[in-house]
Amino acid sequence: MIKRAFAVLAVALMALVFLGVIGDYVELQALRPLARHYVTEVPAQLGAPNVVTGILISWRGFDTLGEVAVLFMVAASIGLLLKKDSAGGAAAGGRDARPPAGEIVTTGAMVLLPLIFTFGAYVIVNGHLSAGGGFQGGAIVASGVMLMLVASPSATLNTALLGVIESAAGVLYVCLGVLGLVLASGFLDPRFLPKGQFGAFISAGAIPLISALLGVKVGAELSVIIDRFRS
């Protein structure tokens, strides 16, 4: 009971803090100077219509690289955490074969999988033009992988190949960053490729390339994480 009272107290105090924040909050009427800079400079300097992708891949590109590294570490640490588990299970009689998925799931997966993967690829490569980008598209691709694993429970995912793809994408990502350092003005500067026509599919310097590598890397990493949880 006393624990419950402390929980009520903690939530009430947090609610007070939040009420203070909401009470002081006034909706912005105009952009802050930093935001105005980004909104005008991303289309002008990078040639990317989507400002958020422009920020994520160029100014915050180093941060994005670190984020992908965090995802990689998570995939590795989950492998470490769950590895002994499955080995012990296999020694203690092994996990019995999973029952096959139902008719509806397998048929639905057959119809939906190509659509999901195509949509994921579209979101990845269209990140500089419209809403989307590497992370979002990678997550869509991984959701397709998840559907595939649900539809055929006995299938195995080639995690070794996925690991190679993911590492190659990571190395290429860093290589593009270094190219930006050498040919343009800084690490992960996408301006070493021509800007192209504003709004065209091949435009905005190296942003589509970096975005595609990011998508491949995120998709592979999330697929590996999903597969690790399955075993």
Binding site: V39, T40, V51, V52, S130, F198
Partner: peptide, 21 residues
């Protein structure tokens, strides 16, 4: 949304886009 297209012209981006940060 801060995406420059037909709904949000290049010139009015500074005035009619949300904060992208």
């Amino acid at each position: 949304a801060p995406i420059i297209d037909t709904a949000l012209g290049l010139g009015e981006a500074g005035a009619r886009a949300i904060d992208p940060v």
